[in-house]
């Protein structure tokens, strides 16, 4: 019989994030499979199975070329809402650098707390090709 690995519980809860393929902006996966600019809307997974479900859900819109580079990341719950733990995700969730240049002239779509409508939020997608977990956070080679 094949060796079955015991399922490890997650060290912390996780949420799933990605960037919009067209605009590149940071978004978070909501429980209904849509993407939100606001991390407070993010779905939260408490164990590996839930995480796999979220990543599969995210993968639906990775496959429809709506988002790119979906991965899960550690959060803590504050008033029931996902709040990022690491500095990288804290900065991403702010959607701005920590030092904001004075001359910055934002466009509305950058700052709006929009909820993006997905082309397809069918969550019956198989979990093969599941988007990468936070073990291999996306990065570009310089």
């Amino acid at each position: 019989m094949a060796h079955v690995k015991p399922i490890k519980p997650l060290k912390t809860p996780v949420s799933v994030t990605a960037n919009l393929l067209l605009k590149g902006l940071t978004v978070y996966l909501a429980p209904d499979g849509t993407w939100s600019a606001n991390i407070a809307d993010a779905a939260i997974a408490e164990d590996l199975a839930q995480e796999a479900v979220l990543l599969a859900l995210a993968n639906v819109t990775v496959k429809t070329q709506y988002v790119v580079g979906a991965y899960s990341f550690a959060v803590e719950l504050v008033n029931g809402k996902a709040t990022p733990i690491g500095m990288r995700e804290i900065i991403r969730a702010k959607r701005l650098p920590t030092i904001v240049p004075d001359g910055l002239t934002p466009k509305p779509e950058w700052e709006n707390q929009f909820t993006a409508a997905n082309a397809d939020s069918d969550n019956s997608a198989s979990s093969d090709n599941v988007a990468k977990s936070n073990e291999s956070k996306r990065s570009e080679n310089v």
Binding site: N19, R92, R95
Partner: peptide, 8 residues
């Protein structure tokens, strides 16, 4: 064109 933390 890179994809960075916040955007391209």
């Amino acid at each position: 064109v890179y994809l960075q933390l916040h955007a391209y």
